[in-house]
């Protein structure tokens, strides 16, 4: 299995221009701010001294390509500026928030599987019959729901009415973290599930019609064992790449959901920064989120190759 991962270095090289492009876009964002970037970044707290200090730090008097090189070298050295809201280096603030958001996203992916696999299986067993039609209708409704509103509705039901879950916050111990993250993760999973279910349903229908499933059936396999051992393994493969494509939206959704549930992750950092007009933090979160998405898409490709032995690696190496 491991020798199949020979393509990983090539995939990493492919990611280099993407990462450079991401830094370029984040860099140019500060130039979209109206007026002098230094003044816009400092906002209300600007004094003539602090403005000229920041102009020096950003190198605003240099030609634009030098400013970009400067920006890049700062990133490489882990220096993303100082956050005004937190009075700390932005890098510290962001790195503290990353694990929280990652846990939330991971839990959401897990719940997405729990929701999607049975529903997609149910729908695929008898296409165009009642269960299938219900699942497809749910999908359509699910896709049109604002994520933050789903979160609020879950708070209303499970937090306010039933009192099973806290209405927000993050708790103190790791176990409490998981408990506090369950509702927000469920919100994200509900948003992701329509895409997952649609992909899984159609690939399951294809797999169910294949010869090897007929063979497995003729051996006497049926029901759950058949589904788990022969169907899901194969129908899950295309779904992995679909979910991979939507990982960016999952991360984007978590930014908003963290605000709904008051979770101290990247989203809270970003939105607090927006309300405080703290530009370095906004820039840093945007950059980190894009880098996380790039890494996630590489991991998806790796997972895809690990799961599906038939994938051609495109490296010219026969495996």
């Amino acid at each position: 299995m491991l020798h199949r991962l020979i393509f990983v270095p090539a995939r990493l090289v492919q990611a280099v221009p993407v990462v450079l492009g991401v830094t370029l876009i984040v860099f140019f964002m500060s130039h979209l701010l109206p007026g002098d970037p230094a003044l816009a970044i400092l906002g209300d707290k600007a004094t003539p001294e602090s403005v000229s200090a920041l102009r020096d730090q950003l190198g605003l008097d240099q030609p634009i390509w030098q400013q970009y090189v400067h920006f890049l070298s700062n990133i490489v050295h882990g220096d993303l500026g100082t956050s005004f809201t937190y009075q700390r280096p932005v890098t510290d603030v962001v790195l503290q928030a990353v694990p929280v958001t990652l846990t939330l996203v991971a839990l959401a992916l897990l719940l997405n599987i729990v929701i999607s696999v049975p529903l997609a299986g149910l729908a695929a067993m008898k296409p165009n019959r009642t269960p299938d039609l219900i699942v497809r209708a749910l999908n359509m409704v699910g896709q049109g729901m604002p994520q933050f509103w789903v979160g609020i509705m879950l708070i209303l039901l499970f937090g306010v009415r039933l009192r099973w879950f806290p209405v927000g916050g993050y708790g103190d111990t790791p176990l409490q973290h998981l408990y506090y993250l369950l509702l927000p993760a469920l919100t994200l999973a509900i948003a992701l599930s329509p895409t997952t279910i649609r992909s899984l349903r159609s690939s399951t229908i294809t797999v169910l019609g294949s010869d090897y499933v007929a063979t497995a059936r003729s051996k006497g396999l049926s029901g759950l064992p058949l589904f788990r051992r022969h169907v899901l393994r194969n129908s899950g493969i295309p779904t992995v790449s679909i979910v991979g494509v939507h990982l960016a939206n999952l991360v984007g959704g978590s930014i908003v959901i963290e605000k709904v549930f008051a979770i101290p992750g990247l989203g809270s950092v970003m939105l607090d920064a927006i309300y405080a007009r703290d530009f370095p933090s906004i820039q840093a979160v945007t950059l980190v989120v894009a880098l996380l998405v790039t890494v996630a898409s590489i991991l998806t490709d790796v997972l895809y190759v690990v799961m599906d032995p038939r994938v051609s690696l495109g490296t010219g190496v026969r495996v």
């Binding site: 993407v18 991401v22 964002m29 984007g252 970003m270």
Partner: peptide
């Protein structure tokens, strides 16, 4: 196509939120 790849690295919502902030 490279530019498209770069833009797809940004979650839609994060990019829109940041840009609306930057543009006012």
């Amino acid at each position: 196509m490279r530019v498209v790849d770069v833009f797809f690295a940004f979650p839609f919502l994060v990019m829109v939120i940041t840009l609306v902030f930057v543009l006012g």
